[in-house]
Design a protein around this nucleic acid. Sequence first.
DNA 1: GCCGTTTTCGGCCCGACTGTTTTCAGTCG
Length: 579
Amino acid sequence: MARSNDLVAQMLDEFADLLAISAGDPFKVRAYEKAARAVEGYHVEVERLDEHELDAIPSVGSHIARKIAEFLRTGTVDELDGLRSRVPAGLRTLLAVPGLGPKRARQAYDELGVTSLSELLDALHDQRLRHLRGWGAKSEENLAKAIHEAQTGGGRIPLGVALGLAEDLLEDLSSVDHVSKAAYAGSLRRMRDTIGDVDLLVASDHPEPVMQAFTELPLVGRVVAQGPTKSSVVTTKGVQVDLRVINPSVWGAALMYFTGSKAHNIRLRYLAERAGLKLSEYGLFEAGTGRLLVSQTEEDVYGRLGLPWVPPTIREDTGEIEAAVAGQLPQLVELRDIRGDLHTHTNLTDGVAALPEMVAAAKRHGYRYYAITDHAPLLYMQRMTADKALEQRRQIRQLERQTGMVLLHGSELNIQPDGTLDWDDDFLAGFDIAVASVHSAFRQSRQAMTARLVRAVENPFVNVLGHPTGRTIGHRRAIDADWDAVFRAAACAGAALEINSFPDRLDLSDELVRRARHAGVKFAISTDAHAVPHLDYMRFGVATAQRGWVGPAEVINTWPLDKLRRFLAKRRPARRRTG
DNA sequence: GCCGTTTTCGGCCCGACTGTTTTCAGTCG
């Protein structure tokens, strides 16, 4: 089930949204948002805390602590119910439209009675919004575009959400009688960045009770179809989940079939056909006699086709079959290869955990080294200063001595529209590592953006280009640049490209990763963690790297420390003594 | 609503960008 911290954070976010729509005190709105982030990232499950302990969470005071306690006790909060009754249901969903905030959502409701996305689309269609104060034709046009983009995102859900849901469901299913194996398949197992519906596979000799249990799970909102071996449901949150129950003896063939991709399966069946065989979800058979040859494990089936087992993350028919036939499947980077995280934040800027907590968590992950890369001054809202950075460096050195862990003091710099960065060279030279990222002016022309990124990666102090395209999945599209030119420049200048593991970023994307490889760039797979639980996102970044066919040698944070240090240092001019 | 070695009251993330406004409001990061 969902972590209690996430449920509480959702509750507080709803509080903040409804207050904002009700034109409440903006500082109060922010207080709820801040508390939501603090709870979400808090290292202890809030359901285990009493009101006094809740109050001790930074950014949670006595009032919010009381509301959290009420929520955990009763499942709701009186004051929130009151707010809900005063704000039309549906109005809140409009805040998810990029570019539409609480003020304008409220205005559309007050003056046009708009309470839902479909009513907003009607109003757009009738050109009624442009007559409201502060609106015009251009705002209508931008809004229509934003809605269109969000919708053609296609109802797909981010990998991280789908995986969490699948794991919750599998945990429930595994405890059902007669279930011998349970796994997720489909695009989720291939770790695509977004997932259409969740495919689950269960091995059992008694399918009916398993199906019955599945359709009665608490997460199920609606049963779309229910049969003895296949059922489809829609969860309470609107995600479609398909379950297939198969005999344990055909596990391997079924898992292959339901993992896909469709294109990969078609190629395999073609290979089988040419060898006088027939491949289906029930196994690999002799075409003439129909005799079953293999079906139990994926390795068995691939093996009988004359192929090594193909990792699910590359089963897209983009060359993996040919490589497998030739015995040249790439060695892919694995989570266990990762020796450290090179992009993380603390509460010195917009993280929610203090430096010692993050370092302790990194140590629990078994990392050999760990970089702290808080934001730099040009992201004004973070109020970073040189003094703060130096004080943090002092603390880091002290923590290194205390924990015996190798800590790299870094910074996440801001790439300005002209490609320049925060701080001067002397100050930059004091950092162990610098990640440079675009945080503003996302809509420059391709030419300007390319020049901007190239200038940034060519800066001798820049080691990693952070979340290179700036996309947030389902929300903001990638910036426009000549990526091949950027990749060439990065490879030439010795700057690594980040594969940001945050599930709504996954940036670079698998496709761009593959292109970047061809330019010979190195990668840094990092979490961009803003809280302790975010460190677990590493697996999403690793999966994205795998989808891009990346091997461990190409990933700088699989390297031993001395090799990593040489990579980080080699581009820098000899450091001038600054006294 | 949260928070505090300048404050228990009075601040609170600050600037860019966009489109609308004839001087600024809303949204975003």
